[in-house]
Amino acid sequence: MADLKGINLAMQTPFTASGAIDYATFEALIDKYVAAGVHGLVLGAGTGQHPYLTEAECNRLYETGAKRIGGKCNVICQTSALNMDEVIRRSQHAESIGANALMILPPYLEGPSDEDGIFSFYTEIDAAVGIDIVGYNIPQATGISVSPRLFDRLSGLKNFNYIKDSAGDLTVHQEYLQTKGGVLNGADPTTVYALMAGTRGVIWGAANYMPGEAVQLYELVAAKKFGEALALWQRMLPSLLYIWRAPYTQSVLKAAQWRGYGTGNIRKPLQPMSFEQEAGLRDALKPLFEPSA
């Protein structure tokens, strides 16, 4: 079982202005994020615009990323797809190039939503791979909620060892923590509270624009310096609340660009932020540029 504790940065996929993957910037970003001390990089995350990447692009991205990372931190690859054979094919490829874990959405978009159907879906994938599977609870996007009871059942599979919980419900999150599975927080505005509650780590999109602060927050909570952690959190929180309600990926990428991480470009069908949205984001980011008290 891979140890996915700490800050697993849900990494952006940098694009050129025309929408092509900028592999040179991708590799440079990996170096920056590793230097910031992140514990893992999630390649092809939602923040990395996975739905708008082809299978061939994902394969090349993961090959390039795993080689560049070179064991300096954990590599988690999203291998979600609608077609069952494609999920398995993507997953086996990611395993073959050195991924430590796979992040896989439940069978969304009119797939089985009952617990037995979801369990069967993950059981088939579990039998086809030999590395950790990170399930994904993001009902606001998939329409499927993974109940704590189902998560506990899934955790009995050989490789299903984690769930990324992006729902933002701290009650459910703490119920997950009562099971035998590993829990990773994925809801930006609840991060510090999930860490204090005992979650193993986070898969965090906002870490794209504040990797150093994200690592520092984790280290403060791990050292039980809760007062210092909450003081840092107050500087992070305005932007986290903003991006959670604004167009998420566009906001993260724009904030990252402004702070020296990436190009800020998106791929269609995503649309650029409006002038008003960018102004709101700039205002929300201001506390990060202020010296700590």
Rank of each mutant, 00 (worst) to 15 (best):
G71D: 09
G70V: 11
G44L: 06
P51T: 07
H50G: 04
R60T: 07
A56K: 13
K67F: 12
E57I: 03
G46D: 10
H39W: 03
G46E: 12
C73M: 06
A35T: 11
G48N: 05
A35H: 12
A28V: 05
L41Q: 01
T47K: 00
K67N: 14
G48P: 00
V38M: 08
G46L: 14
V42L: 14
A28K: 15
Q49W: 04
D31N: 10
G70Q: 12
T64P: 04
R60K: 14
G40T: 02
N59C: 08
A36T: 02
V75T: 10
Y62H: 13
P51L: 10
A35D: 14
H50C: 09
N59I: 11
V42A: 09
Y62C: 13
H50R: 09
K32M: 10
Y52D: 07
T54I: 13
T47Q: 01
L43W: 02
L61G: 05
G70Y: 10
N59H: 15
G40K: 02
A45H: 02
P51W: 05
D31T: 07
T54M: 11
N74D: 10
A28W: 08
D31S: 08
L29Q: 07
L41I: 13
D31A: 11
T64A: 15
A36D: 07
T47Y: 00
G37T: 07
L41A: 06
K72L: 06
A45V: 04
A56I: 09
G44R: 01
G70S: 11
L61V: 05
H50L: 12
A56L: 08
C58E: 11
G70H: 12
T54K: 10
V42T: 11
T54D: 12
V34W: 03
T54V: 11
N74W: 03
R60V: 07
R68I: 01
E55K: 15
N59P: 08
N59E: 15
L29F: 05
L61D: 01
A36K: 00
A56H: 07
A45T: 01
T47H: 00
D31V: 04
R68N: 09
N74P: 05
E63D: 13
H50K: 12
G65E: 03
I30E: 01
D31M: 06
N59A: 15
R68E: 09
G71F: 08
G37S: 06
K32C: 09
A66M: 11
Y52C: 06
G40L: 00
A36F: 02
K67Y: 14
T54L: 10
G37H: 04
T47E: 05
I69M: 00
L41T: 01
Y62K: 08
V75I: 15
T64K: 13
T47I: 07
G37P: 02
G65S: 09
Q49A: 09
C73W: 00
G44F: 03
G70C: 10
V38C: 03
L61I: 09
K72A: 10
T64Q: 13
Y33L: 09
Q49G: 06
K72E: 09
E63S: 13
H39Q: 14
P51G: 06
Y33I: 06
A28T: 12
G65Q: 02
G71S: 09
A36H: 02
T54P: 04
H39Y: 05
A35N: 13
A66K: 04
E57V: 07
Q49D: 11
H50E: 10
K67T: 15
A56G: 06
I69C: 03
A45S: 15
C58K: 11
E57P: 05
A36V: 02
V75N: 00
